[in-house]
Amino acid sequence: MENNVIISIKGKQSYEDMEDETIELVTEGRLDPDGTEGYTLSYQESELTGLEGTLTTFQIEPERITLLRIGEVNSQMVFEQGRRHLSLYDTPYGSLSVGVSTRKMHAELGLSGGSIEIDYAIEIDHAVAGQNLFQINVREKRPILQQ
């Protein structure tokens, strides 16, 4: 079953000796059950995020969330509370080794939507690059009523 949704994303990046950077995005996407206990949430990136031409997918499982990006930018980031995962971040300008250490995560989703929160530290080529917080709210897209 395809479920069209509205996705509100708030991302906050904190760097040492720099002002926090916050981005907010509202976009349309899809929320689909994956056949087990999880969900798949996906949307097309836009020019606003600098990732135009990239499909972003969150695979949400009870103990793990995987962020996949395919297109102009290719990456996979795995979030598991209290664990560190390494992945490759492939851009048109080259590849980087990215480490993700998840401090806290919470996902509460159903067919009609829900929320995801991920608090994690990111390191690039083994140097800590900052602290990030994703807050994602998902709600059903209501059909436009015809007059």
Rank of each mutant, 00 (worst) to 15 (best):
E19V: 01
T57A: 08
L31W: 07
E61K: 15
G110V: 07
E47Q: 12
K10A: 05
Y43Q: 09
P33E: 12
S87I: 00
L133H: 11
G114R: 11
V100I: 14
N132G: 04
L133M: 12
R84W: 02
T40Y: 06
S97F: 02
S46F: 00
G113M: 12
Q76T: 08
G11Y: 03
G11P: 02
I124R: 11
H85K: 09
E123L: 07
L55Y: 03
E80D: 05
E28I: 13
Q13E: 12
S75C: 04
R84I: 06
E52L: 05
G82M: 02
F58L: 15
M18G: 03
R84T: 08
R83G: 02
H106I: 11
P33T: 07
D90E: 14
I9M: 14
Q59V: 09
R69M: 01
L51H: 01
F58N: 15
S42V: 07
A107N: 10
E19W: 00
G110Y: 04
I122D: 05
G130C: 03
V128N: 11
S97Y: 02
D32L: 09
A129W: 01
K12G: 11
I60R: 04
G94D: 10
I118S: 02
S87T: 02
M18W: 01
L25K: 13
I122A: 11
D32I: 10
E28F: 12
L67K: 04
V128W: 07
S46P: 02
T66V: 15
R103D: 12
I116S: 05
D17S: 14
V98R: 01
K10P: 08
A121E: 13
G94M: 14
V26M: 12
I122M: 07
Q13D: 10
R64W: 06
R103S: 12
L96P: 00
R103V: 13
L86F: 14
A107S: 14
G53Y: 02
L109C: 03
L67M: 06
H85I: 09
L41H: 11
T54N: 04
D20L: 04
I60D: 10
D34V: 03
P33A: 10
D125H: 01
G53Q: 05
E47F: 06
G38P: 10
G11E: 04
K10L: 13
M105T: 02
L68K: 10
G113W: 12
I9A: 08
L88G: 00
E61M: 11
F79W: 13
L48V: 13
T91N: 00
T56G: 11
E80R: 11
T36L: 08
S101Q: 06
G94T: 09
N74D: 10
L86P: 06
D17M: 14
E52R: 06
V26Q: 14
Q59H: 08
R30H: 12
L111T: 13
Y43M: 04
E37R: 15
S14A: 05
L51S: 01
E108G: 05
L31M: 10
D125F: 02
I116T: 10
T91K: 00
V26T: 15
G94R: 12
L51C: 04
E19D: 06
